[in-house]
């Protein structure tokens, strides 16, 4: 069976730290950063990047359109 590996890029300035992507991620890849952006939000970031399968659930639920998802097929 084919396996996928993904990567998530968060527009950290646009992110409001609502946590919905963190909750939506089935692989528990995302978490809120300890740092804040210029508006004071703890933005979302990949905490466990090796676990990302590029399913895009985080991107779909993001209300602020700040998530970009990449995905590759690996053997």
């Amino acid at each position: 069976m084919a396996k996928f590996k993904g990567a998530v890029v968060v527009n950290t300035e646009r992110c409001k730290g609502c946590d919905l992507c963190v909750q939506a991620c089935p692989s528990h890849v995302l978490g809120l950063a300890d740092q804040v952006n210029s508006k004071g939000y703890h933005f979302s970031e990949m905490k466990h990047e090796d676990d990302c399968v590029g399913c895009s659930a985080c991107g779909y639920v993001c209300p602020d359109a700040c998530i970009t998802v990449y995905k590759v097929k690996i053997q």
């Binding site: 993904g6 990047e49 590029g54 998530i67 995905k71």
Partner: peptide, 14 residues
């Protein structure tokens, strides 16, 4: 992750 982040692999964006 750096290798994956490549326009060719884009699956979701704004």
């Amino acid at each position: 992750t750096k290798d994956i982040i490549n326009p060719a692999n884009l699956v979701y964006s704004k």
